[in-house]
Write a protein that binds this DNA or RNA. Structure first.
Lengths: 212, 212
DNA sequence: ATAAGTTTCACCCGAATTCGCTATTTGCAG
DNA sequence: CTGCAAATAGCGAATTCGGGTGAAACTTAT
């Protein structure tokens, strides 16, 4: 049984959702609200698994509400449903932590399927939205990808991580409970494996090329 | 009628696709190939609207092939279908210009629907894949927001940039045609403005917080 | 159990860095 | 014109770093 909370200012639509959810096996409407003025309280009072969130609403909009809800209930899945097709809305919704983004042109069956999918850990998106996401992705993100290994040992990785934080050999030695000469030894090996010759170069490479 | 070219090394699967496409109204298989060794020639000889591309193939893999095809036929839609669920594959496929990314666990009907959607300008994605895309998006898109200034002067920015490349004071001085003592001065001021006390820390902050 | 690799530590030396203070020149704003 | 910020430069000292050499203790794989 998937409990769904609905936030939608259009009275008619809100009631349609409520009806649809309560009359379909496996779904139930945990609550239907016309705005997000008490969103945290609403969800606390009437727990749910998935939130169906409209964007255009009086008072707090759906994206701000998503941010807020995610902060208080990080594990909750939020499915954005809207008529907006703009990059900016999509972008902000994703950044706010939305798990899915579907258009209001979706069929009732599509809504139910999308709700099931977000519950299952997926991110249903109207294909057109998905296209926009991919485009945003491509335009905003050239680099990345390598994630090479360089065959660093565990200890070397630790040293490199601490080096990245800007710590001196002495402090790193203290952190790892070993002598400073040991650190020097590790650093030498790291430089050798990374083919660099200074701390700054190593840090630069570590951040850009690796996960550190 | 959507013309689909299939690139898939598994003979059985390839034939299944061919059969499916040729026996469904609205679809036709423009060609089915076991590898991408002649991908450009294949597509030129037998034009299509959508390419169904496997990733794991002998010789050129599907992602490289996608890059190549997109370079020669930018308007062509490429639908990646694979068993791979790894971030890196997804990321690279998107960057290569794929229009959709579905798993091989998709049903025949799902394949046909996905093909229609890419043709229509959408980007069908298995919901689990979509989730990964959103996560990649969120994790890789932080640095767009901050971009603080720290009130660095132009010269200080140049010095910091060169520092990030791993150059020594001496080399930076040479690059900027000033004395090494000048670099020392700038570095001192940079550290002061960034509130750091070492080159590695400055580089780390510079890369993470700024555009450098 | 022998080999290989990882982790640890030591000593040395020259070069590089960090940091404090001072100071000149230049360009721009009040 | 005057003053301030930026860029330049220098000096000295304490410290850190980068590399070279070597080696013991321990783990893992063969």
């Amino acid at each position: 049984m998937i409990r769904v909370a609905v936030f939608e200012d259009n009275k008619h639509l809100r009631e349609v959702f409520q009806l649809l959810l309560n009359n379909t096996a496996g779904y139930t409407c945990a609550g239907a609200y016309p705005d997000c003025s008490n969103v945290i309280n609403d969800i606390t009072t009437s727990p749910c698994d998935v939130v169906l969130m409209d964007i255009e609403m009086p008072g707090m909009n759906g994206i701000e509400a998503t941010t807020l809800v995610k902060k208080n209930f990080p594990e909750l899945h939020i499915l954005i449903q809207t008529v907006f097709y703009e990059d900016e809305y999509i972008f902000n919704a994703i950044c706010a932590g939305a798990s899915g983004y579907i258009l209001k042109s979706t069929t009732p069956a599509g809504y139910l399927e999308a709700i099931s999918e977000v519950k299952a850990g997926g991110s249903p998106m109207t294909p057109g939205i998905a296209r926009k996401v991919l485009e945003l992705f491509k335009t905003n993100l050239q680099p990345l990808a390598p994630a090479k290994d360089y065959n660093l040992t565990n200890q070397e990785k630790k040293v490199l991580q601490l080096l990245v934080t800007g710590k001196s050999y002495k402090l790193i030695a203290a952190d790892l409970f070993v002598s400073i000469d040991t650190i020097k030894s590790h650093v030498r090996n790291i430089y050798s494996k990374l083919h660099v010759h200074s701390g700054t170069e190593a840090v630069s490479l570590a951040i850009r090329d690796k996960i550190v």
